[in-house]
Amino acid sequence: MNISQSLFYGLVFTSVFCALLLAVAVIPLQYVWLRPEFVCLVLLYWTLYTPQHIGVGLAWLAGLLEDLAVGGVWGAHALALAVVALVAQIAYQRLCSYSIWQQCFWIFMLVGVHQLFANWLESLHGVGGPIGLVMLPTVISALCWPLLVMVLHQLRRHYHLQ
């Protein structure tokens, strides 16, 4: 593994780690349903822009770690992120050619799929939420997408990573 490759994986792991921190950070009760799906967004970014390195396997692992961290049903986020990563890997050429606002719409759809799958497995354990509220983070996540793309693009440019 050469230096730029290790830098790349370092950046990926750091971003996923930060997303996990944001996913468990305490937020006020009234905003609790508005938390964006940070881990999902970060993994979508890496699968869309570097599909040759990041794929279903890593997304699944990150999802499992998120399940452990949030104390929910094991496998719920793992399945959801694997599904989303698969779709992103198949459609990355089309999605990356879109403008950022068109991408936002697609991110809305993909995070929605993530929420549906995660919520499906969580409701097996009785901790699935009402569908209207479960879909709220989807909107917020889509609105966060341009910011995330900007930050991660900058970081990649800064470290000269392709």
């Binding site: 699944w60 049903v73 496998g75 694997a82 097996l124």
Partner: peptide, 11 residues
């Protein structure tokens, strides 16, 4: 992976 995840959730 999907099957493993569903199995995990069921267990």
């Amino acid at each position: 992976l999907a099957l493993v995840a569903i199995a995990l959730a069921l267990i």
